[in-house]
């Protein structure tokens, strides 16, 4: 993914690697690869978290996940334009808007798709896929297909020099947001009544009605949370990535692979898998031409599921 700072960094890393020859690659260059991979991996994990949450809760793969990311980026773009406030401060608003979008999508589309008595799996795939195309069309209608970016932000384009290792601030911030989101998610699931209702509903969505849990409400909030998480990811990405109607596609694919690699239904599997994928991508990009960097991810996914058909931490 050709993000601006990332590419510059990679060139720098490649320069370092070539100067010294790959074999005697300095510690610095190696650390640079690992750290940039790690940071990008945390962002991948954050993108995948919502997908994983929704899947674990109700066995539905949201094919509009990439478009949710795109919507979040445009929401940030529009808000910055309208309010002239820095993206960092607007992040909660974007996450809130995305929460609403997720809940509306569940109530308006997914709830009906789940009622299908025949070939429910395909109905869900194509209902959410149709939604993805509609969202892409709406983005084109309101924002045109042009590439946008948010100029002059607090973090955009700035790097932190840590003893010769260059860390772009937007990615550092994104990594921190990702870790915070996973901690929050952990606390939510393990410490709150809603978390227990969530866990119970994913165990047995039919039986929870007997103990007075409103399944529909749990699903609605689950979709809100899933979309809210991708809202956080989109807010961060809007700072350092180009925004356009088709931006979601490649990230969605990475997110599906992340969720499957971690194991469907395991949110923290998605965290581990996201970091692994970020690292593999960073390493592949140094060895192979940049446009082939996703090959490493694909190979890793196939290798893992052939050994462990349920992903790393899958529990279904």
């Amino acid at each position: 993914m050709p993000c601006r700072e990332h590419r510059l960094l990679r060139l720098r890393v490649k320069g370092l690697a070539q100067d010294n020859g790959l074999k005697t690659m300095t510690f610095q260059a190696l650390a640079q690869i690992v750290v940039s991979g790690l940071l990008m991996g945390l962002i991948y994990a954050l993108i995948a978290a919502g997908l994983s949450l929704i899947f674990g809760l109700m066995d539905v793969v949201n094919f509009a996940h990439g478009e949710f990311l795109m919507m979040a980026m445009y929401a940030m773009f529009g808000l910055v334009l309208a309010l002239a406030v820095d993206p960092v401060l607007l992040m909660p608003i974007v996450a809130g808007l995305m929460f609403a979008l997720g809940a509306i999508v569940y109530l308006g589309v997914v709830r009906h798709a789940m009622r299908a008595k025949v070939n429910a799996g395909m109905v869900q795939v194509f209902a959410t896929f149709g939604l993805a195309i509609v969202l892409r069309g709406l983005a084109q209608l309101f924002f045109t297909p042009d590439f946008r970016s948010i100029p002059n932000t607090w973090l955009g384009g700035k790097t932190l020099n840590l003893g010769g290792i260059f860390l772009p601030w937007p990615q550092l911030f994104g990594g921190a947001v990702s870790i915070a989101a996973f901690v929050g998610l952990y606390l939510l699931i393990s410490r709150t009544d809603f978390g227990r209702a969530l866990a119970a509903t994913r165990e047995d969505a039919g039986a929870v009605a007997l103990v007075g849990i409103d399944r529909n409400k749990v699903f609605t909030i689950g979709w809100g949370l899933g979309a809210g998480l991708v809202g956080l990811a989109g807010s961060v990405m809007a700072i350092f990535f180009y925004i356009h109607p088709d931006v979601g596609g490649p990230f969605a694919l990475t997110a599906y692979v992340t969720v499957a690699l971690g194991g469907f239904g395991s949110i923290f599997g998605a965290l581990a898998a996201g970091v692994i994928i970020g690292l593999i991508e960073a390493i592949t990009a140094t060895i192979l031409p940049t446009e082939m960097k996703s090959l490493g991810i694909y190979a890793a996914y196939l290798a893992v599921v052939f050994v462990r058909p349920r992903g790393l931490f899958g529990n279904i």
Binding site: G130, I133, G137, L138, L141, P145
Partner: peptide, 8 residues
């Protein structure tokens, strides 16, 4: 993008 909206 109206074509996409109708199609989707």
């Amino acid at each position: 993008g109206i074509d996409l909206i109708i199609y989707g």
